[in-house]
Amino acid sequence: MNTAQQEALLSEGTINLVGRVVESSNATFVVEVTRDDDYTWAIYKPESGERPLWDFEPGLYRRERAAYLLDAALGWGLVPPTVIRTDAPLGVGSLQWFIECDPAMHYFRLVRESPEAHERLRRLAVFDVVSNNTDRKGGHVLTDEHGGIWAIDHGLCFAAGYKLRTVIWDFAGEPIAPDILTDLAPLADAVPDEIAELLDEREVRALRRRTQRVLDMGILPIDETGHAWPWPLI
């Protein structure tokens, strides 16, 4: 099933709750989505299950969708297909394609044990800088059964103020590959409408500024404070 077909199934399929992800800080559910003979599991994050935050407005599900759209605009294939459903069992929320993975194979193992994954992890590091990810834990980097690397949990992205917190500091100070900079360049000039509609004006302007800064610097940032890490780490 290609990406367009996955999006269509998520957007149009019937949703049934399977169970709750108990370790998640916000209410998060595994659901099954069916349409005719098509079937998948998905991760459902309803707005009604969000904990109030002082630095993010309600509606984190919109940021989940915006992260997917940003990844799609860049053509990097890091974020699983993610849609917004208003007719889900517990109200409006995001629905993301479920990635079958080994939960023990998180970022820290990948970076130590899989040198072949480093190029994709570097790309993810750039994605997190541009999207201003405030919560890139090691367990938010997944490896599927084919060895593909995926990034999940983007509800705390796109703040206007600089809030980067990530575990991906192994490549700090390294030059960013020219093809990555080429992919980013259009974003400094204009944010695609479909993404801008999910953010406020300050966040859209900040997204362009962060992109331009990455283009100007040409290297992955260095955490000079030692505090730009999420907790827990995994």
Rank of each mutant, 00 (worst) to 15 (best):
I168G: 03
L95P: 11
R62P: 04
W76H: 08
A151G: 15
V130H: 03
G218D: 00
E64I: 08
I234P: 00
H146S: 09
D38L: 14
T211M: 05
H154Q: 13
L233P: 06
G155D: 06
G19Y: 02
G91L: 12
H146T: 15
L9Y: 01
A228W: 10
E7L: 15
G93C: 05
I152S: 09
S24F: 05
A88F: 12
I219Y: 09
R20V: 12
D223R: 07
D38K: 08
W54D: 15
G93D: 02
L184H: 02
L199C: 01
Y107I: 04
D36H: 14
Q212S: 13
F56K: 09
D37R: 15
Y162M: 07
D200T: 10
R120D: 07
D38V: 01
L53V: 00
Y61E: 06
A67P: 14
G226T: 10
D189G: 03
P175W: 05
N133Q: 11
A228G: 03
G173E: 02
A185T: 04
H146G: 08
T182G: 06
T14V: 14
P230Y: 10
E116Q: 14
H154S: 11
R205P: 03
D87A: 12
F98D: 06
Q6E: 13
T143G: 03
G148Q: 09
L215D: 10
V214Q: 00
T28V: 14
N133H: 11
G93M: 05
Y61Q: 03
G173P: 04
F98T: 01
A151T: 13
S25R: 15
R63N: 11
F171G: 00
T14Y: 04
V30T: 04
C101G: 01
E23Y: 08
G93Y: 05
F108C: 03
V33K: 05
E119D: 15
V92K: 13
D102V: 03
D55Y: 13
Q96L: 02
D144C: 11
V129C: 10
I149H: 01
N133M: 11
T166Q: 07
L233K: 11
G138D: 09
F108P: 03
I99F: 05
Q5E: 15
Q212W: 10
L10Y: 08
H154C: 05
R20D: 08
D170L: 04
D38C: 12
R35L: 13
A228L: 11
V18A: 14
N2R: 09
I43P: 08
Y39I: 08
L69D: 03
T166G: 13
E100Q: 12
D189S: 03
L142F: 13
G139N: 12
L60K: 14
I176H: 09
L199W: 12
I84L: 15
A125E: 06
K163W: 05
V191H: 00
P192C: 06
G161D: 14
P80C: 10
A72K: 12
P175G: 07
D102Q: 12
V129N: 01
V126H: 01
L142K: 06
L70K: 00
F127T: 03
R35N: 11
I176A: 08
K137V: 09
P178S: 06
L207Q: 02
A206K: 05
G173I: 14
A160D: 14
Q96K: 03
L9Q: 11
F108G: 07
V18C: 13
L156V: 14
Y44S: 06
I99W: 05
A177P: 03
R213M: 04
D38G: 02
L220G: 02
R112K: 14
W76Y: 06
L78K: 04
T182H: 09
D71E: 10
G93T: 04
